[in-house]
């Protein structure tokens, strides 16, 4: 994938202090095109799609929505809290605004914690963007597939 001027503009909006305090790239120095290409390769290698990953995470969020920040155990495993923050956050790709409340997930089995929100899921589903390395919102596609048990789609499905 080529780093186009459009990707340059998007990457500029991902810097700290523009849309959010810490931005979307963490300490990742690579061009956005490279970040997107590497994550696409990981997703393809796992035999799944960005949409499948986003759908799986959205389903977990749904279990915690409407609970006004009360923690809920999902699938007898994940401890999930959906924050009730107000306000909308713009997408760095300039294609919409998304509710700010984070879904916070702890997995006692692996000791891992995860954090995402409506914008994160949009960025995964529509842009294949999982944040840069070192970002608080970085999600490793391979790890998501393993921890949340995302199965490859059946051929022709």
């Amino acid at each position: 994938m080529k780093q186009t001027p459009e990707l340059d503009r998007i990457q500029a909006r991902m810097q700290p202090g523009i849309l959010t305090m810490k931005g979307f790239l963490g300490s990742d120095p690579r061009p956005l095109a490279e970040i997107l290409a590497e994550d696409l390769a990981a997703v393809t290698a796992a035999g799944v799609t960005h949409a499948q990953i986003a759908d799986r995470l959205a389903a977990i969020t749904r279990q915690g929505t409407d609970l006004m920040e009360r923690e809920v155990k999902v699938e007898d495993r994940f401890q999930v809290t959906v924050r009730d923050d107000r306000g909308l956050l713009p997408s760095p790709f300039g294609d919409g605004r998304f509710a700010k409340g984070d879904t916070e997930v702890a997995d006692p089995r692996t000791g891992r914690t995860f954090r995402w929100n409506d914008l994160t899921l949009h960025l995964i589903r529509d842009h294949g963007f999982y944040n840069g390395r070192g970002s608080d919102y970085r999600l490793e596609p391979g790890e998501l597939v393993t921890v949340f048990g995302i199965a490859p789609a059946a051929p022709g499905a």
């Binding site: 929505t65 409407d66 959906v82 924050r83 009730d84 107000r86 509710a99 409340g101």
Partner: peptide, 9 residues
């Protein structure tokens, strides 16, 4: 008055 989730519910 609250988050979109709370309002929806």
């Amino acid at each position: 008055c609250g988050s979109p989730g709370m309002i929806g519910a």
